[in-house]
Design a protein around this nucleic acid. Structure first.
Lengths: 132, 132
DNA sequence: CTGCATCCAGCGCGATACTG
DNA sequence: CAGTATCGCGCTGGATGCAG
């Protein structure tokens, strides 16, 4: 679905807020500190653990492991172990993971487009409301 | 921008990950526990503080205040005080706030569409990996 | 190379009580 | 009705060390 034009969410009644729970669950995943970076890093195809780690640069090993595992649990990342020596583990987006890319990139574009406006609004706000 | 078809984010090189920082900042906002629910609640027009609170139902007064304030700071919510007695305060989405609705709803639709698949993937994963 | 366990600091957020 | 202040718990996430 989500064909061409209009979006089909209901108006602001309370049943809408019921819908928000799964949405929130997902957004919490996507909005956590690293998921989006990982989606981006895996955009071009399979990558190895330390390759991803280097690409992101500032992520700790712990958080990379944890985030990858929860994304694997969600079914958006596939983990493949090659029993070589030393071991090699590849991660890649599943179909579900790739389908997530589009809305995520849309939100990313929004963020990039409006970053300046937001920063400016914040400065203005902080000027009027010194440490409020 | 974000005209019709394809998205224009760069491929998975490292400069992309630079872009991720502002994106992450925004997603952290959007992905926090309440922002989306508030965007949804304000979708139809201005609402009063306790009206929003009732609509969401489970939000604490503290978090509603804090989230509204940070959204106001971001420039996505406008706060209007009517000096009546008792006081009345309306909150509404600004143009920026409304522009956020579209990508947020897109992600919401994704979440709704794929919730079942995700839940199923999680069950399957948990079955294979008992409390791992 | 990959990835788990442990320890620990910080803050997100809810509960509660109080003000104009 | 709208908003602030305080307290406390639990989770997030970084650092470090160990193991296959």
């Amino acid at each position: 679905m989500s064909q061409g034009g209009t979006l089909m969410l209901p108006e602001h009644n309370d049943s809408l807020l019921e819908l928000c729970r799964p949405v929130r669950r997902i957004l919490a995943r996507v909005g956590d500190k690293w998921s989006v970076m990982i989606v981006m890093a895996l955009k071009g195809g399979p990558r190895r653990f330390n390759d991803i780690k280097r690409a992101i640069g500032t992520i700790s090993q712990r958080m990379l492991t944890l985030t990858l595992k929860s994304m694997e649990r969600d079914g958006s990342v596939k983990r493949t172990v090659y029993p070589t020596k030393p071991p090699r583990v590849d991660y890649e987006l599943t179909a579900l993971g790739h389908s997530l890319r589009e809305p995520v990139e849309r939100l990313s574009l929004w963020a990039i487009e409006h970053e300046a406006a937001i920063t400016k609004a914040q400065s203005r706000f902080d000027a009027l409301d010194p440490q409020g």
